[in-house]
């Protein structure tokens, strides 16, 4: 693949200016469910475009009620893992954005060191949704961790 094709992986702000500290900070100020969900859904709208041709069986994240796709690219020059996630559900896209903010553009050892549970703990909403099966949040996290492990070993 040419560098150009990887631009969709690398040219976005997830893991950079869109990070969990910033998300948690904003989230703290939202006190009704309407605002919280609006915020999550808006985050999802910032996700980079997921290539249609990559919406295949291999990239499908299982255990979700909606369809969720996750693909990755390891930048050999920086050693950083880049992710792309997409879903056909708005809230799940928002959750995917939080997963991206937590894990994207990190080297595999950093990915594995992320204490995602602590982040979920801090976000009341996420604590609520992460407990329900079927939204795919757990499956997304698991898949990212497996990818990082696979590269690390």
């Amino acid at each position: 693949m040419s560098n150009n094709e990887h631009s969709q992986f690398t040219e976005n702000d997830f893991g950079g200016s869109i990070n969990t500290d910033e998300i948690l900070e904003t989230f703290e100020f939202l006190d009704d469910w309407e605002d919280r969900y609006a915020f999550i859904i808006d985050l999802g709208k910032k996700l980079p475009t997921f290539p249609e041709e990559a919406k295949n069986e291999i990239n499908l994240v299982h255990g979700c009620q909606s369809q969720v796709w996750l693909t990755h690219y390891l930048d050999q020059s920086t050693g950083k893992l880049h992710l792309l996630i997409d879903s056909d559900a708005l809230i799940v896209r928002g959750l995917a954005a939080i997963v991206m903010a937590s894990f994207n553009a990190k080297i595999p050892s950093e990915v594995l060191a992320v204490n995602i549970e602590a982040i979920f703990e801090k976000m009341d909403l996420i604590r609520h949704v992460s407990a329900t099966r079927g939204n795919g949040l757990r499956s997304m996290v698991k898949k990212v961790q497996l990818i990082a492990q696979g590269i690390g070993s």
Binding site: W33, Y37, S66, I91, V92, N135
Partner: peptide
């Protein structure tokens, strides 16, 4: 513009239980 799972989650916020899927 909404996935059924979005509808289910957002109704649950309002105390309303439906099935989606």
């Amino acid at each position: 513009g909404l996935h059924p799972s979005d509808i289910g989650t957002l109704l649950d916020q309002q105390g309303i239980a439906i099935r989606t899927g």
